[in-house]
């Protein structure tokens, strides 16, 4: 038996918004420690890794490990049927081929339930090695989304260059070129408003704007984003979900021919 109760269904709505354009379907692996998901996009260029801790749920019960293949488009349809502050419960029997999703309003005057068919999906897991990244940039998630959106107007590729002075985002295309430089914030009122850089070695890598913009769909989940980079390895774009867990996106760099 698997059962998880979340006090704000809006959190799961935002999570689905953050992954539904990269993944059509995904396997949710449930265990007593929580729910995990790891899946690559169709082109095998990026990977979504999500972890929701059991302690982040109001109630969480998972008697046996369970892998649920979920069509994300179907789940988005169901999540459209609730309000952000509805309480939701997801439930499945062991070896079940359906998942039950229930919503209740806070005053419990409206209760609804939906049953969704589960799928058998081929799982292709990647072993992601522990990496000591050369540059770890923490910045406001809204600023990162703004930069990706603005610069993708000019070119398909974004160069991210990190030095101890700051981080520079650059692109170029038919109409010209664009650069945005961010320096480390010297003073800030709230930690999430600042830009901080931990660096052991300068790094400069090129990434596809299209994917970066898709990762930015996670912006509503967190005020901060963490970019981790090392030479010639995939970029990690991480959004912490308050009290619940995190979503990490990995993106393979583009390399000069």
């Amino acid at each position: 038996m698997f059962e998880a109760r979340l006090l704000k269904s809006g959190q799961l709505k935002k999570i689905l918004e953050a992954i539904k354009e990269l993944l059509k379907e995904a396997t949710f692996d449930c265990s007593d420690s929580g729910i995990q998901l790891q899946a690559m996009d169709d082109a095998h260029v990026s990977l979504v890794s999500m972890c929701l801790k059991s302690t982040g749920f109001d109630k969480f019960r998972c008697d046996r490990n369970l892998s649920m293949g979920i069509n994300l488009e179907s789940m988005v349809k169901i999540m459209k049927c609730c309000s952000n502050d509805d309480i939701m419960t997801i439930k499945a029997q062991d070896n079940a081929d359906t998942l039950t999703i229930m919503f209740e309003t806070k005053n419990q005057e409206k209760m609804s339930d939906y049953e969704m068919k589960l799928m058998n999906l081929d799982q292709e897991h990647l072993g992601i090695p522990e990496t000591n990244y050369s540059c770890i940039i923490k910045m406001p998630s809204s600023e990162f989304a703004r930069i990706c959106r603005d610069l993708s107007q000019f070119g398909d590729s974004l160069v991210i260059a990190c030095t101890k002075e700051g981080v520079k985002f650059s692109t170029s295309g038919d109409i010209g070129s664009a650069n945005v430089k961010l320096s480390q914030t010297s003073t800030f009122d709230k930690e999430e408003e600042g830009v901080t850089i931990e660096m052991t070695q300068a790094v400069c890598l090129t990434f596809a704007c299209r994917y970066l913009n898709l990762f930015c769909k996670a912006t509503p989940l967190s005020t901060q984003v963490i970019l981790s980079m090392s030479g010639d390895v995939p970029l990690v774009v991480e959004y912490q979900i308050e009290e619940l867990g995190c979503i990490r996106y990995y993106l393979a760099p583009k390399i000069e021919e």
Partner: peptide, 14 residues
């Protein structure tokens, strides 16, 4: 123009 790599170039399939 730089070419796009796949993730499997960096991480092993398990």
């Amino acid at each position: 123009t730089p070419i796009q790599n796949e993730l499997a170039e960096f991480f092993a399939l398990i």
